[in-house]
């Protein structure tokens, strides 16, 4: 049913409907781990990893559920897939690259409750993407998440030494900045649409 081109899907998930700034998915890590650039991009890499793998698995599982006529198990199976993907990725990285594991280690378990990952799985299902579209969508969405996270981290590092009233410090400031970033990202609307 869905005839969007791969390029459109990618740009759409990356910028136009950025997962954090316009669809509001993955806000918790966006607020929580955007204080330092170094941690922000590591979190981003971990999310890209997990999103891609879980998107593949979710695609397969959904196909299986449709065949079995058991779509009512979709939410449960998706969350189980994500939780186990996080575990698998954790074990895999630990075995293959201890250095990377030390860098990503504590961020991995947090991804289970990152709604961006579950969001990718749910959106690709409800929009009836085929296999290639799903992969491209997962890539675009997770790259978009990382871009937003890194942008926010850069801004927050710059603001560290600024003189900000006590009341505004913390979450409220991050949200104000996110609002401005989100306004900027609205400028991407209509990109790539024939006019």
């Amino acid at each position: 049913m869905n005839n969007q081109s791969l390029g459109h899907i990618f740009i759409d998930a990356l910028l136009i409907n950025n997962f954090v700034l316009s669809v509001f998915l993955g806000i918790c890590p966006f607020i929580g781990v955007s204080a330092k650039l170094a941690t922000a991009w590591r979190m981003g890499v971990a999310v890209i990893f997990v999103t891609l793998v879980s998107s593949l698995l979710a695609y397969g599982t959904n196909a299986l559920l449709v065949v079995l006529n058991a779509e009512y198990l979709r939410i449960i199976s998706f969350i189980v897939i994500i939780a186990s993907t996080v575990q698998l990725v954790e074990m895999f990285i630990k075995k293959t690259s201890p250095a990377l594991f030390r860098a990503l280690g504590i961020y991995l378990p947090l991804i289970t409750t990152n709604c961006a990952v579950l969001g990718v799985a749910l959106f690709q299902t409800s929009r009836q993407y085929d296999f290639a579209q799903s992969v491209v969508f997962a890539a675009g969405a997770s790259f978009g998440f990382t871009i937003a996270l890194v942008l926010m981290a850069v801004i927050r590092e710059k603001l560290e030494l600024s003189d900000i009233p006590d009341t505004v410090r913390g979450t409220a400031l991050v949200l104000l900045l996110a609002g401005i970033l989100s306004l900027a990202f609205m400028g991407f609307s209509g990109m790539g649409v024939e006019s």
Binding site: F24, V168, L173, L175, S182, L183, M186
Partner: peptide, 15 residues
């Protein structure tokens, strides 16, 4: 009604 409004409104309430 648009996404930036969501961020800004929540920020204002927190303030």
């Amino acid at each position: 009604l648009l996404p930036p409004g969501g961020f800004l409104t929540l920020a204002l309430w927190l303030l």
